[in-house]
Design a protein around this nucleic acid. Sequence first.
RNA 1: GGACCCAUAGCCAAGUGGCAAGGCAAGGGACUGCAACUCCCUGAUCGUUGGUUCAAAUCCGACUGGGUCCUCCA
Length: 445
Amino acid sequence: MKIFNSYTNQLETFVPRHQGIVSMYVCGPTVYNYIHIGNARPVVVFDTVRRYFESQGMVVKFASNFTDVDDKIIQKAKEEGVDEKTISEKYINAFLKDVASLNSRTDYIKPKVTEYMPKIVDYIQGLITIGYAYEIEGDVYFRVSKLKEYGQLSNRKLDDLISGSRIEINEKKESPLDFTLWKKTEEGIHWHTNFSDGRPGWHTECVAMIDDIFGEEIDIHGGGTDLMFPHHENEIAQSLAKNHHTVAHYWMHNGRLNLEGEKMSKSTGNVVLVKDLNVNKLAYRMFLLSTQYRSPLNYSPEALDVFDKEWQKVQKSVEQLYRLLDLNDQLKDNVVVNASDLVDINNYFIESMEADFNTPNALTALNQLMKAINSKLRQKPDFEWLNQAYALTSKFLFILGLDFNLTKLSIEEKSLIKQWEQARINKDFELADQLRQLLVSKGLI
RNA sequence: GGACCCAUAGCCAAGUGGCAAGGCAAGGGACUGCAACUCCCUGAUCGUUGGUUCAAAUCCGACUGGGUCCUCCA
């Protein structure tokens, strides 16, 4: 398995710290609104990464946070005249619902800032103790100049950062690059600490959570490229200071999703929400996987329509295959795939995924498989081959997160389908058309 | 202003030194009781321009055109 490591800026062979176990952390949402289709990209990308490792027999320990303390949440709470918890709970639930609709797993560790406050405060206190942070008038800042590695991840030099800085000069800070760990405030939800009454900056939560959940370095840290600087750079800075390592062995960053060529973000209002997508959500997932995760991806309704059709084709082929096997009582479990054409397709699929999760090529393999199945469905049934093809299809769909439920036919349904087939053989087309209409209305063909 | 990325057929998109995958659209054909579905065939001097090499979409330089980050953002 090769993974492009953003920290070293090169393709590297993936070796987990502990054999057979993969630890992953992905930066999660700030919960003040419904997620848009761009927010869904890292969710789907890293869910697919997780699914692939699991399909290879590895145990994946996966965590992703909820930022439930933030200026925007406080502002929203004020606007709506409710407390912050009401807002964050509402949008955490909405997030999980949207994630599930994209067939991304929700069974992962979900730490919240509000539940991590003592550990975040301890983390900050620890940084002060070792001289990597300082407190001024109740605010606490990280002392960036003390860390010569700063800028490695985002490939920046300290001098460039200072000269190119558009950050307003904060007189209190020692250097404009120093970032806030704790901010003194009495507005909105806040906590009492030795430094002041206030709340944390947003860079400490992830490292404090990773420290607590994983105890040591993790294998993979994921997130969008836009988080590289400053957020991930600052995570690394804090971790280097406190733990002398860079949090993760592999840093993975997914590219942005643009809307009709324009940047999409909640703050500009230029958004399409996941819950408002009017196509099958799995078609949207397929669209997201149709481009390599590191490349930018441009969304347009027309582009999505293509995958809506693609998805329906796949769905139809898989259903037909399943129905045929079911109708003939030929469905089997634990099928070994050894037909040479299927083995070739499987090899291509696996090679693609092993090459830094090349999902576009994995989708090509899925396409080849569908084509092979469609051809075989027109021939005299070879149930051995068809069962193998079904097993392979199920595997591909699981890994890509495009799996969907198929239910076995009842005896009555089987009988109906057989009657329809017989009517056609008998050239009783009036009866055949009636039966076909009935079967279509039941969603069986 | 500083840092960085991208440019492959009408559209989407793989390929990162050895004759340019795949999908959509388009055209042709096959199958079919009618439908729908499906299958087969047809398309590229890889943005422009210099260079390195036996060999370049792929490496290096310049140019042009897009985009990202430096501020909240996934």
